[in-house]
Amino acid sequence: MLVRRLIARLLDWLLVLVVVWPLVREPAAVVLCAAVYDALLLRLNTVGKVLTGLRVVGPASGLNLRRVLARTLVTTALPGAGAVLVLTGLGWREPALMTTLGWQQPWVVVGEHVNAGSAGWLSSLLLVSGFALLVLSIVEALDLRGTRTWHDRKAGTAVVRLKVTSQQNR
């Protein structure tokens, strides 16, 4: 179940990345779009979950906005913010790398104009912070108990596998 969940999450991120990146070329905007995508489709089903045969189910009372936002914050915004921090730290260290990726945003320009000593310190802080958020996200995702991870338990949701129904030919 955990592998299916991770594949579904990666497929959803790739879909958002492929659609949004050419339009904005801004990692923070991609993370915001991924969070909106996740929150809006939580009650329905995301493309990644459909392809892997999974579905998020909520409590009998339904999912209120607070639960949806809490789940989206932990599952999408937290690892996304970690990735943005890592990219920003790399951009300050290697602006040419980020330019080749098509990321021409103010953080890289600011990093070029900050003196070398503080830029090295700030880029290291951004990299470490980003990696810490990514590790926290991985640990949180691995806290799987049955069909529920930590974020599922806090949001009152569970991810279940859809049963494939085969129609019999008559």
Score class of each variant (00 low, 15 high):
residue 5 R to I: 06
residue 7 I to N: 06
residue 9 R to D: 00
residue 12 D to K: 00
residue 12 D to M: 01
residue 14 L to D: 05
residue 16 V to K: 09
residue 17 L to T: 12
residue 21 W to I: 08
residue 26 E to D: 07
residue 26 E to F: 07
residue 27 P to M: 11
residue 30 V to N: 01
residue 31 V to Y: 02
residue 34 A to I: 01
residue 35 A to K: 05
residue 36 V to W: 13
residue 37 Y to P: 07
residue 39 A to R: 06
residue 41 L to Y: 09
residue 43 R to W: 00
residue 45 N to G: 13
residue 49 K to M: 14
residue 51 L to W: 12
residue 52 T to F: 01
residue 54 L to R: 14
residue 55 R to K: 15
residue 56 V to T: 15
residue 61 S to Q: 14
residue 63 L to V: 14
residue 66 R to L: 05
residue 66 R to D: 02
residue 67 R to I: 04
residue 67 R to Y: 04
residue 68 V to Q: 02
residue 71 R to Y: 08
residue 72 T to V: 01
residue 72 T to K: 01
residue 76 T to R: 13
residue 78 L to Q: 11
residue 79 P to N: 05
residue 80 G to S: 02
residue 81 A to I: 15
residue 81 A to Y: 15
residue 90 L to D: 00
residue 90 L to Q: 02
residue 91 G to F: 03
residue 92 W to F: 02
residue 93 R to N: 03
residue 94 E to S: 15
residue 95 P to L: 10
residue 96 A to W: 10
residue 97 L to N: 15
residue 99 T to C: 09
residue 99 T to N: 13
residue 100 T to R: 14
residue 100 T to W: 11
residue 103 W to A: 15
residue 104 Q to M: 10
residue 105 Q to V: 13
residue 107 W to N: 03
residue 107 W to S: 14
residue 108 V to P: 03
residue 108 V to N: 11
residue 111 G to L: 04
residue 114 V to G: 05
residue 115 N to I: 10
residue 116 A to N: 12
residue 116 A to R: 13
residue 119 A to M: 09
residue 128 V to E: 03
residue 130 G to V: 09
residue 131 F to M: 11
residue 131 F to P: 06
residue 133 L to D: 05
residue 135 V to E: 01
residue 138 I to E: 12
residue 139 V to H: 07
residue 146 G to T: 11
residue 148 R to K: 06
residue 148 R to V: 03
residue 149 T to V: 04
residue 151 H to L: 10
residue 151 H to V: 15
residue 155 A to Y: 06
residue 157 T to L: 06
residue 157 T to P: 07
residue 162 L to R: 12
residue 164 V to A: 15
residue 165 T to E: 03
residue 166 S to H: 03
residue 168 Q to F: 04
residue 169 N to I: 15
residue 170 R to L: 03
